[in-house]
Amino acid sequence: MQFLDKSKAFSKSSPITNPLLKKLILFLVVTLLLYLGLDALLHYHQIGLTFRTATHSILGNEEEFLDPILFDTLLEHVHADILSAMITLMLLTTILVRLNPNSKQKLVHLSFITAILTQVSLILAPTLPLFISLWVILFISWHLLSLIIGFFVLWKLFK
């Protein structure tokens, strides 16, 4: 990512003139956007993205003969999610800063904080149903914020 850090060369708008770098960033961001969409779809099927379906998947449901999720399975899930969220957000924010050094700090703070709290609430989900609804809200929030960053980068790239 250091290749993106050309701090000295930053101007107010910091346009990317190298056509190869422009294409690289385009394909990387499109891939990350696709990943974010598919990740949401995967979680929708694995855990569920509504309070009712997520509660059934995590705590189980006797009426539907659903067993609660095992804690080590949940922890494995969180462990893998932290890595993907960490790399996705790091790449997106680095590109965002490279293209627009004057970006709002709040967007970067919010996207990272929601991603971190998503993982924390999923670990705590089996203890209190409140954390399940919190997980659903935070999960959707960090994906939406990342999508906003991604689309903003694409808009800046071709402006």
Partner: peptide
């Protein structure tokens, strides 16, 4: 280094 880079790196370290 731009401040936003620092913020991103700090969150990366936390994660």
């Amino acid at each position: 280094m731009i401040n936003l880079y620092r913020i991103g790196i700090r969150y990366f370290l936390i994660m």
